[in-house]
């Protein structure tokens, strides 16, 4: 089976680094440091358990994949920011 595209996305800067997601991840696919969190793309199977477990609502599931999503979201945020000034 070919590797699916990554669909799990952690909103940068929103995470509280509590580790709940790491505890339920069956693939050891999340790297958590004091104030940094990353999905290890090669290991993630998009099982969504981290999305359900997150108490903070910061892990998102994107059916179409998350490639370039951060760029799009950043652009979006900037637009919204631009509107406020």
């Amino acid at each position: 089976m070919s590797k699916q595209e990554l669909m799990i996305y952690i909103r940068p800067g929103k995470c509280d680094y509590c580790g709940c997601c790491v505890g339920v991840c069956p693939e050891d696919a999340i790297e958590l440091m004091e104030s940094r969190i990353e999905i290890i793309e090669e290991r993630c199977t998009n099982c969504k358990k981290c999305v359900w477990a997150c108490p903070w609502d910061v892990i998102e599931f994107h059916r179409d994949g998350v490639k370039d999503l951060s760029n799009k979201l950043n652009a979006l945020d900037e637009n919204q920011f631009a509107k406020t000034i």
Binding site: C18, G19, C20, V22, G23, V24, C25, P26, D28, L32, K49, W52, A53, C54, P55, W56
Partner: peptide
């Protein structure tokens, strides 16, 4: 709760999703 050391030693430490209490 975010333990990974056990996994590196070959122990399955994953918490079943129905056992994990999500807290705030």
């Amino acid at each position: 709760v975010e333990s990974r050391v056990g996994k590196w030693a070959g122990i399955d430490t994953t918490c079943r999703i129905d056992d994990m209490e999500s807290c705030a």
